[in-house]
Design a protein around this nucleic acid. Structure first.
Lengths: 336, 336
DNA sequence: TTTGTATGTTTAAACGTTTAAATTTAGTTT
DNA sequence: AAACTAAATTTAAACGTTTAAACATACAAA
């Protein structure tokens, strides 16, 4: 890679000091009252040499990299990928770049990512927290590193976040099932201490209670992310193919829903006749299923955009915290 | 953000020059024969102060950022997202980070991305080319910037790439249909000058010819990415619901397949009775469709890993080009 | 003529590293 | 004791920017 053109090269060509070149190329010719004629020459030379400023040098000087770090559970998950795209676009609009990393829901990995990205001097983080990551927030706060949480947050820790009103979203979903007349309503959620998932569970129970429906303990099931397929098989078997199957099922995430639908497909169960379904998040799968699936859609674009804007505010030194619990949309199809 | 600990701080604390600290912390204590005792003190101090080297400064000095630029069409597309994840992991193993950008299949945007990332001094690119991007390759080559193409490449331009043997993959798919006894075989592909897509079309025609099947021109259709839904509607209408519908359909990408399946779902067509289907790429949709879809699977992990390895080789100054056309797998389900 | 002011330009230090070269110190040969 | 060698450490420049401060020049005012 032949050495790139630097300020010095331009300075040399025009016959001035690098300072002048810097002033002109940064639009400070007026304030620093650079001579009209020389300014022109400098601009001309910059163009001729196709000068591209070295951002690394700029960063070293300014301490700013104009880069945001994005940490998600897994960039290969459509939810993360979609949000990543939105964040990328929003960041680009503000002339920021995005470096990303996947934590695999693993606090250890998330730590590594944070450390690595910090050493690369990114200006701030957008993070979808892993479980047991309170420490990390604490660290970021102590070191005054700007960050915004998305999707998940810890209610007891003070921090900026842009998330879903998970309770309301899930409540609305379960209520929808109830109003459709289903009485035996089951739910499958991840086995997880994450607040946003627990909120969905809380909403399920609350809704059943509010509408005076009984809730057999066995109707609520938890699956482990790492054994997703097996756990789903096992629980669905019990929920749907036992003596007294549930009539309706609330599947609390896109991955859970996809697995659930696959099971239903394989066993040739009829939706909504044998079991009504309501899913969470979005996936092509919902539309492609023989019976399009009613689901709870998160406002992805809003989440992404708000997160970037909140983060940039923090980076710019405006310390007001942003705490958004956005509303989901119930997309009614024909699965219940 | 309180100022971070620098070499100077450690030097000061121990009472030596920064040079020594640098030597020790970079494991050069032996070659530079740093005193045993002082070396210990330095390490100790570094630990106590929790020293984290400033990578920006290192980069400025070395000209290396240990960061790879990844340019895909759209990070929100599962294909891109999956590859991104694999690339991320492989890069991490070699202590590299990944910055990404989406080109939206738009040469202009891809240019911007390249420029921006170059100014950030990334060490090399992994690129899924947009159409009309020959120039960009030329530019990268002229400037001796290491890069590896994935998924797409221009056969007439000499460059490292890791891609699929699209011709063989598609040929195998069509041959599968033929061997199943289908005679009237249609195909839907993107309207695009991209070589990898054209190869799929070429394979379709070649296979039909090799097996002495007639190929009505109307059986081959092209859709425009931006009008995907409408175009698909229109062509499927003609292909499947006209006087003489095709018996089987080769859908040449995941997006096309998903749209096609949605159409089939809406119109309540039977697969494979009314029409047999073979899809390209992977998507949950294939498994979720009431009749699991036979498809051509790309070896994503191989593509990603090979791309990173090839790129790192180039970065390390080994100029041998990597040109891989990997084989796809035909995943036989029940749609044909 | 001196002083002052406005205008235009350069100098030099700084950001946090790396590293070749110079320097100091101690030890060994003559 | 002089000369040399080896070991340990420092110095200073460099990477490519930015920017406060110093400097130079011209011109007007006293």
């Amino acid at each position: 890679m032949k050495r790139k053109v630097s300020l010095k090269d331009i300075a040399q060509k025009v016959g001035v000091s690098t300072a002048l070149v810097s002033y002109v190329l940064n639009g400070q010719e007026k304030q620093k009252r650079v001579g009209e004629e020389i300014a022109q020459k400098i601009k001309q030379a910059a163009k001729e040499l196709n000068y591209q400023p070295n951002q690394i040098a700029k960063s070293l000087k300014s301490g700013k990299t104009h880069t945001l770090g994005l940490i998600v559970a897994d960039i290969a998950n459509p939810f993360s990928a979609n949000i990543a795209r939105i964040i990328e676009d929003e960041a680009k609009q503000h002339k920021y770049n995005v470096v990303f990393g996947s934590s695999d829901e693993n606090a250890e990995k998330a730590w590594d990512l944070i450390k690595v990205l910090l050493n690369r001097q990114i200006d701030g983080f957008i993070i979808a927290l892993a479980e047991n990551a309170e420490e990390q927030i604490q660290y970021l706060k102590e070191h005054h590193i700007p960050f915004v949480l998305i999707d998940r947050y810890f209610p007891e820790v003070q921090a900026s976040y842009v998330a879903l009103d998970n309770f309301k979203a899930a409540y609305d979903g379960v209520e929808h099932l109830i109003r459709k007349g289903y009485k035996r309503i089951g739910m499958i959620n991840f086995e997880s201490g994450l607040f946003h998932l627990q909120e969905r569970t809380r909403a399920y129970h609350q809704a059943l209670q509010d509408f005076n429906l009984s809730a057999e303990p066995g109707w609520y099931r938890e699956v482990n992310e790492d054994r997703l397929k097996d756990d789903m098989e096992q629980h669905l078997q019990q929920l749907l193919l036992s003596e007294e199957p549930v009539e309706a099922l609330f599947l609390a995430s896109n991955k859970i829903a996809i697995n659930g639908l696959k099971f239903i497909n394989e066993r040739k169960l009829r939706v909504p006749e044998d079991v009504a379904i309501i899913g969470f998040d979005e996936t092509d799968a919902y539309d492609l299923f023989y019976c399009p699936v009613t689901h709870i859609r998160q406002p992805m674009a809003e989440i992404g955009r708000n997160a970037v804007q909140a983060l940039l505010k923090l980076i710019d030194g405006d310390d007001t915290q942003t705490q958004l619990n956005l509303e989901a949309t119930l997309v009614v199809k024909s699965s219940c």
